[in-house]
Nucleic acid binder design. Sequence first.
DNA 1: ACCCAGGCATTGG
DNA 2: CCAATGCATGGG
Length: 308
Amino acid sequence: MNGMDRLTATIRPTAPFDFELTAGYHTYFQSRYGTDSMEDGVYRRLLDLGDKLVLASVRSAGTTAEPELVLDLQGPELSTEDVDLAKERVSWLLGVDQDLASFYELAQADEAMAGLVERFYGLHLPHTATVFEALVLAVLGQQISTSVARIIRTLLIETFGPSAKFDGETYYAFPRPEAIWASSPAELHTMKLTRRKSEYVHGLAGSALDKAMGLESLGSLTDQEIVAKLTGLRGVGLWTAQWVLIRAVGRPDALPLGDLALRRVVSRLFMDGADVTDAQVEEIARRWSPYRTYATVYLFSALRTGAG
DNA sequence: ACCCAGGCATTGG
DNA sequence: CCAATGCATGGG
């Protein structure tokens, strides 16, 4: 325990903010989702600050209307810069700065969406730590059931992810591209990925390491430019690119067309259970623009809690 | 034993 | 240019 620090900081989200819902959505309303956990009202994630690994434990000290989060940090020799960086990272992970007011106003025009807003009031959109993370998670999830994806994801994280031990428990951060690039498609294939996905994931690690690609600095680009750049990568189609816009870039008006689960929930809530095409989903989603991201988050939330 | 799952690139018409 | 096909693997 040499030089191990333990510090506390406060985060004030933009109201309304429901901590349980937002962290729960992040972990698919399970106690663990890859690198993230939500147990007994505490959200935990190991932060990879580059030169050190810091365990962030977050709990609510406020209400949905007057939200306040207590961030507990554990790590080696934490400077004030480390604390500021950790606060910034956790704020991004939980999407605390989002203002939902305009989306909520828009949702009132739509009975089903208004119902979801009421039910999931204060749910913010959580983000991944990096674009690379969102890309890899999306590719892993392509075409297979969430339960299979979950097993593969855990395997990948526990094989390649940096880890640290706190209070006798081992925590993992998401694998750095370096670690996956140093592996090989052949090795990845032994980890239950298809041969093709093994190549995709390995290639994505290479792209993430390519500074000229600028994968982690998409902020100045338009949605269209980002989609064009991402779909240029092998293994990344429109669905994955939209997924990244939502999960990693935090763009408010993305729509993951092609998503089977999205089709299912739209069918159930808007088409009386009749089969819907992507074109119909796009047509229905028009009413939620420019907040289609939030609309899909609330739809998926219904699905993940069994309400869809 | 079957069939499907929060897609994608590749191939063949 | 559009339709069909293979992919790994756990659950239903």
